[in-house]
Every structure is written in structure tokens, then in C-alpha cells.
Design a protein around this nucleic acid. Sequence first.
DNA 1: AAAGTTGTAACTAATTTTGTTTCAACTTTC
DNA 2: GAAAGTTGAAACAAAATTAGTTACAACTTT
Lengths: 145, 145
Amino acid sequence: MQITSKFTVAVHILTCIDVFGGQMRVTSDFLSGSTGVNAVIVRNVLGQLRNAGIVETRQGSGGAHLAKALDEITLYDIYKAVDCIDDEGLFHFHENPNVDCPVGRNIHKAMDGRLKAAQEALENELKSTTLAQVVADTRKIIYGE
Amino acid sequence: MQITSKFTVAVHILTCIDVFGGQMRVTSDFLSGSTGVNAVIVRNVLGQLRNAGIVETRQGSGGAHLAKALDEITLYDIYKAVDCIDDEGLFHFHENPNVDCPVGRNIHKAMDGRLKAAQEALENELKSTTLAQVVADTRKIIYGE
DNA sequence: AAAGTTGTAACTAATTTTGTTTCAACTTTC
DNA sequence: GAAAGTTGAAACAAAATTAGTTACAACTTT
């Protein structure tokens, strides 16, 4: 089980928009070239980021732009934007426990809070890191200290 | 994206073994009835739990038993036993980033540590809760305070 | 020996994820 | 205002993953 690659692709895309945005038009085609992901998928991801208010794109003109400062975008914002985890939560309960069994009837409730806490631990960690940090690290690796 | 239901099924199974183990033989068939999961899947899960040293089962005789005390089994042990997350980690990187692009070449490394930290936050939370707690909560709901 | 059980392999079905094709709508430039 | 290049989105296809099923050998107990 893995979280959809759309998440890391989205981070990649946003990093490209910041790094290359000053010099050129960052189109879905260019981003497809850098990420290795199909251009339509890139446009889908950009659409989700746009709906979340993270980027701005326009039909025709081409080129995506950040709609927020880098340090105002957390990894959690991106994770939510691309819908990594649905409303059911990170953990998956089997659909048909036997309600005639006292354990089957109650185990969901007994586990739920603890599993939510685990998911929140993950999400809080993502909330604590911003795109600014990731981009800074990327630039460091590219251009040196 | 959700973590395989084998995880919550495994917790369900282990809870049943503890709750019903005194009174009856807890077979894969019985567990299939309580969980609503196919008996072969139950046996697969039991096999993984056995490999991890969490339960004991034997061909022929039937009935699974815990191999450890409830408070020595954490949710993390179960999560590892049923292989929720493979060696690649929780987050999934796309396979074909463009190595000719400075971002494509380096973004993986730039993100990796932070994503590992998020995964560890999740796993540490799972390490902090034991099956004893889950079973106690389940018993409370079943039998009251 | 018979009945019931586990362990495992091979196969099927369902679901999810990713990729592809296609084209209308829009913007810019010539 | 026509041409070129781009986004947005729908419909479809392919690949991968997850869960279920069938079948049967190996084992234990009665």
C-alpha cells in the first residue's frame, strides 16, 4: 500500500514552478517532461492544486503560477489537495463484520479513536513542513550551499 | 488510498482469540464468521501473525492461540506483521523523473527525509498502543464498565 | 479410518491507479 | 481574425493491487 504518487508529483510540480517560473513558462508539457508523468495527469493534479488555491492556471495563456507564498503551503495542504486519503480515513475496516458477534459488533468502535490518532500524527507532521523547506533543500542540492 | 484491511482484520482476529479463546476453539472458520472475511484470507493473516511470533497455530488440531501477552503486542507489531507498507515506504515516488532536469534529478532526495519523518510519526503512534488497550476497550463496550 | 482443520498454490473478480485519446474553450501572436 | 499553442475535461484503456475462491495435500484428534 502506498499513498498515490500524485502527492510527490504535486510537490515536484510546485518545486518546478518556483525554480523555473522566473525564466520560462511552466506548462503542463514542460512539467510532464520533468516529472515523467503524462501531461493529462499533470493537468489533473494542477486542477486539484488550483481548486485548493495553491496555484493559478488559465486556459490558453499557459504556464502555472503559485497562488501563495512558499512558506504558506504545507505538505499537508498538498496532501489534502490531491486527495491522498478519502473520508473513510487512512485505515480500512472490512465491510461485513458479523453483528451477531459481540467482537464483530464493537471492534470498529474500539479501534477507531486510536487509528484516528495515528493518522493525525502523520498529518501533523505533514502540517509542520512547508514547501519553502523542500524547495530550499532542493536548491541547496542543485546549486550547492 | 487506504491501508489494507488485513490490518484491522488482524486486530479483530487477535481480539477474538483473547475474548473467546477460553471458551472454545477459535478456528479460521469461526474467525471468518466473526470478521466476514474469507476463511482462506483469515488463514493467510494468521500465517503472517505466526511468522511474526504473535500467534501459534498448528495443522490439524485447530484453534489459534496468542504467543505473547496482550500488553506485549503493539499495533505496530501487527502492522508490520501483515505488511501494510512495503520497503518503498508509505509515500510513492513516480518512477521516471527526468534526470536531465535539475529538479527531476534531486527532488526525491530533497523530500525523502521529511516523508520518512511523517511515516515515523504514524508508526510511533502505533507503537505506543498495545492490543491490551484495544481489547480492554472492546470488553468495556461489550460487558460495560 | 473418519472428520475436521491448517497451509498453500493457482486462479478469478473487483477495485484502484495511471495512462491515453480526443476535442472544445481560451489566449496570444502574427 | 486566423494560426499556433495551451488548458480543462470526458471517455476510454491498461496496469497494478487487493480481496475472494477453489482445490487439495498435510496434519491431529477421536
